[in-house]
Design a protein around this nucleic acid. Structure first.
Length: 884
RNA sequence: GGGCGUAUAGCUCAGGGGGAGAGCGCUUCCUUGACACGGAAGAGGUCCGAGGUUCAAAUCCUCGUACGCCCA
């Protein structure tokens, strides 16, 4: 036999992920394992990736999102599905335009210096050069994405899908143009949808001032948090039921700066309790005022331009920034004696989700989608379970939003994006078209121009589950892979993205876009704070990969994916790295000891020993557990089951139990255990593969194995064997005895080198038989010379231990420290006494014995007997000590 | 203002109507022929509070408290 240490030294004892990962990923990719084939003999399993922004780099949130998807995809691939995980990126209108404009600014240029066409060209160039960093980073994460099907929301195909959807909705009257109050970002210079505005509480002041009536009969006081908007006031509204203002309704006040006549009007929308009960009306700068203005036919005067600078309507403050104007208006009102002071007031302010600038409600001409008709089928589809959320609580979150949905502002005053396919001719005609027209279809005029705006980025992302598969063409991919199986994403984009995909999928595909929506939490720092550049608490997944390896990062994330937010600490990742290394070393051990054993059929049952049967039973249980948990999206539970099996069962018990037989010269003894070792390891690798793909593949490639499949990632998912309850119970007894002896050793400070020859017995003859049978393994694991199995321990001296129904006597050859022994027994007696008391109370309760299920009552009786027997033995030992 | 989530060991978190769990940390011992990124043994908990349902509640229900998030 070759010297095993020589072979051991050939495999490094610390697993080095970096080299392995790059090599294996390239191999997988080049061999086409990621590529999904349409196979009529197999069911499809499809996930479309939530497309990251083209400007983005892989952050820890992506790492979680993509890891979870990859776990599912690898699992289903091994189960034999035709799995497609479709990658791609979002053109991210505002974000990308901002990045490129920032670059231009460093050269002292604006996009207007370049002009529209040249600017868009520049963005494309930027995209080719710097965009899509994330696709390389996803490779480091091990993501088994079908790169041959990668898509981009501005691709030609996807752009056609966008246009088709726009034209369709336009022609059905669901897209319309209107002059309305929208959220305007003065920095980005564009409209935003409601969801793109982030609200936060802000400590501000409520300022009060007064309008004097035209006829000098008095005045009305109003309050506002945005004082500068008074420049656009065209009325003051009061509640018609408010007695304080009964006489004022219908009167006019004079605007102190413009001289405009301002009518006092009555409207039910006014809250009598708030402020003075009188509300200034600025229809062009407040959505509520806008609605009142519509009802009363008020003038809507916009006092700001697109940069939130006061325009000519706001003279004499023209040219001032909105906040400078606020101060100037205050001072001017004070000068005129109209200012009535301020009170502290907390209110929510909205900020642009892209750049953080405070948004301005602004009156402008924009395009909108009528959402209600689209929402109805999407509500139904979730209510009747065609699409289900996991965890289910997100169902209500989705439904609440959908039931209160408001129209979607889809036009953006940007250049980067899908241009709105609407044309106007000089004769005032307007139409939407799939193809760029040469002339007006109504009057034939060739004096036409296209709408300058582009669409909200999410307008194209909402089509992602089918536009990426070829729609509007009826492609075989679309036919085979749609609807997708599950969408994996974070809860923060349920409204902005998931809901809209539901609506567009149902309308254009007549079917839901996914059967399941799996919602995971957000990755936060160890203190639970959101990661942000300004806090400086951003954890870079690539750094963690460099430090601990991809598998370690993936495992940490999966192990904590319970549906709650994840507070990630690097200690976890190092713990997972240890796990990966543990598996690596277990594999080293198995390979060095395989001695010609191959993965293949197991030895006949009669050649297996208890430990073999036990680990095979546990492997089956683990296989069931991991499969069941993955199928119900319980990713953390699945990962823990893998961890438990590999570390606590395979390594801690089976490998230790196997060592003795492995060292045997007799192939009849070592052969079966070698075969079991190799086979169990191989199956465990497959169970672990979706979570830790690299290390499992690396080991799998090294295993002595007849391969009909060249890679673990396309090997078959394991199937559990029938349960072997007897082996589990029998080995459980072994574990109990071994643990009792180890514990005793440890308490006594007995070195493992001190060989012991304890005696063991039980009142149960079956126990004694089992002890004789399992003597060798117990001795091996507990470090005994031998375990003497006796009919009875009467008269046997030494420390007494209890392991379930088994009693053990450890002769100490005069080393017995009576006091230490008495302390140990005393502690045990206390513990057992408490247990007995608890069970006795329970059994004394007639309600319990009468009404609890018989098996539960019987179980308590059994427990009581067991504890009492233990107690008797302990007391006898204590007495023995006293007398001895 | 409405809604959701969370509260379990020193820390981070699983679990879940009938014997309190893991990882990390801590203590003691161990370089035993896979692994010290390791092994063995331990210490450590009125399962947030108060009611209720039940034979039985850490678990289900109600209310409260604290923290977090979302929507308006």
């Amino acid at each position: 036999m070759p010297d095993p240490t020589a072979e051991l030294s050939e495999i490094p004892k610390v697993y080095a992920p970096a080299e392995v990962e790059n090599r294996l990923y390239r191999e997988w990719e080049s061999k086409g394992y990621f590529h999904a084939e349409r196979d009529p003999d197999h069911e499809p399993f499809t996930i479309v990736i939530p497309p990251p922004n083209v400007t983005g780099a892989l952050h820890i949130g992506h790492a979680l999102d993509h890891t979870l998807q990859d776990v599912l995809i690898r699992f289903k691939r091994m189960q034999g599905y035709s799995t497609l995980w479709l990658p791609g990126m979002d053109h991210a209108g505002i974000a990308t335009q901002n990045v490129v404009e920032r670059e231009l600014r460093t050269k002292g240029l604006t996009r207007h210096d370049l002009g529209r066409e040249k600017f868009v060209e520049t963005v494309w160039e930027w995209k080719e050069l710097y965009g899509g960093k994330i696709t390389e980073q996803d490779r480091r994460l091990g993501s088994s994405l079908d790169w041959e099907r990668e898509r981009f929301t501005m691709d030609e195909g996807l752009s056609r899908a966008v246009r088709r959807v726009f034209v369709d909705l336009y022609n059905d009257g669901l897209i319309y143009r209107g002059n309305r109050i929208i959220n305007w970002c003065p920095r980005c210079g564009t409209a935003l949808s409601d969801i793109e505005v982030e609200h936060s509480d802000h400590e501000g002041v409520l300022e009060q001032f007064r309008y004097d009536f035209e006829d000098s009969s008095g005045s009305v006081s109003v309050a506002t948090t945005r004082l500068e908007t008074m420049l656009g006031d065209t009325a003051v509204a009061v509640n018609p039921k408010d007695p304080r203002y009964a006489g004022a309704i219908g009167k006019f006040a004079i605007h102190p700066f413009s001289g405009r006549r301002i009518q006092i009007i009555a409207d039910d929308a006014v809250d009598m309790e708030f402020g003075t009960g009188a509300v200034k009306m600025t229809p062009a700068h407040d959505p509520t005022d806008f609605e009142v203005a519509e009802r009363h036919g008020l003038e809507k005067i916009s006092i700001m331009d697109g940069r939130a600078v006061i325009n000519a309507e706001g003279a004499p403050f023209e040219g001032m920034d909105r906040y400078d104007a606020r101060k100037a208006v205050r001072e001017a009102l004070q000068e005129k004696g109209l200012y009535e002071g301020s009170t502290p007031h907390n209110y929510a302010i909205g900020k642009c989700s892209r750049c953080g600038t405070i948004v301005e409600p602004w009156l402008s001409e924009q395009w909108f989608v009528s959402m209600k008709p689209l929402a109805e089928p999407a509500i139904e589809a979730v209510k009747d379970g065609r699409t289900r959320f996991y965890p289910s609580r997100w169902t209500n979150y989705y439904l609440n939003w959908m039931e209160g949905i408001r129209d979607w502002c889809i036009s953006r005053q940007l250049w980067w994006g899908h241009r709105i396919p609407v044309w106007y001719c000089d004769n005032g005609h307007q139409w939407a078209a799939m193809e760029d027209p040469a002339a007006c279809p109504e009057c034939g005029s060739d004096h036409i121009h296209q709408d300058p705006d582009v669409l909200d980025t999410w307008f194209s992302s909402q089509l992602w589950p089918f536009s990426t598969l070829g729609w509007p063409e009826e492609t075989p991919d679309l036919e085979y892979f749609y609807p997708t199986s599950v969408l994996v994403t974070g809860y923060e984009i349920i409204h902005i993205w998931v809901a809209r995909m539901m609506m567009s999928g149902l309308r254009f595909m007549k079917n839901v876009p996914f059967e399941w929506v799996y919602i995971h939490g957000i990755v936060r720092d160890a203190q639970g704070r959101k990661m942000s550049k300004s806090l400086g608490n951003v954890i870079d997944p690539l750094e963690l990969i460099d430090r601990y390896g991809t598998d370690a990062l993936r495992f940490s994330l999966t192990e904590h994916a319970t549906g709650q937010d994840i507070f990630l600490s690097t200690e976890w990742v190092s713990g997972s790295r240890n796990f990966v290394n543990k598996l690596w070393n277990a594999a080293r051990f198995v390979m060095v000891n395989a001695g010609g054993a191959q993965v293949g059929p197991l030895p006949d049952d009669d050649r297996l020993e208890l430990a073999d049967r036990w680990i095979l039973a546990r492997l089956s249980a683990a296989t069931d557990e991991v499969t069941r948990q993955l199928e119900s999206f319980e990713m953390a539970a699945a990962a823990r089951a893998v961890y438990e099996f590999i570390w606590s069962e395979f390594c801690d018990w089976y490998i230790e139990a196997a060592k003795q037989r492995l060292s045997s010269e007799d192939p009849e003894v070592s052969g079966p255990v070698r075969a079991v070792l190799v086979n169990v390891l191989e199956q465990a690798l497959r169970l672990a593969h979706p979570f830790i793909p690299f290390v499992t593949e690396e080991i799998w490639q090294m295993l002595p194995l007849e391969r009909d499949r060249p890679s673990i990632m396309i090997s078959e998912w394991p199937v559990a064997a029938p349960a072997d309850a007897e082996a589990v119970a029998d080995f459980g007894r072994v574990q109990e005895v071994v643990s009792a002896i180890r514990s005793f050793r440890s308490e006594r400070g007995l070195s493992p080198k001190v060989r012991l020859t304890p005696s063991a017995s039980s009142e149960d003859a079956a126990d004694r038989d089992a002890l004789r049978r399992d003597n060798a393994i117990i001795s091996r694991l507990a470090g005994l010379d031998e375990l003497v199995v006796a009919q009875s321990l009467d008269g046997v001296s030494g420390a007494r231990l209890i392991a379930g129904s088994i009693e053990i006597a450890v002769p100490m050859e005069g080393l017995i420290d009576a006091k230490a022994e008495a302390d140990r027994l005393g502690k045990l007696i206390d513990k057992v006494q408490k247990e007995i008391a608890k069970v006795e109370v329970k059994l004394a309760n007639k309600g319990f014995t009468d009404r609890a299920p018989a098996d539960v009552v019987a179980e308590q009786h059994r427990r009581l007997e067991e504890e009492k027997a233990t107690m008797a033995k302990l007391k006898a030992q204590l007495a023995l000590l006293g007398s001895g």
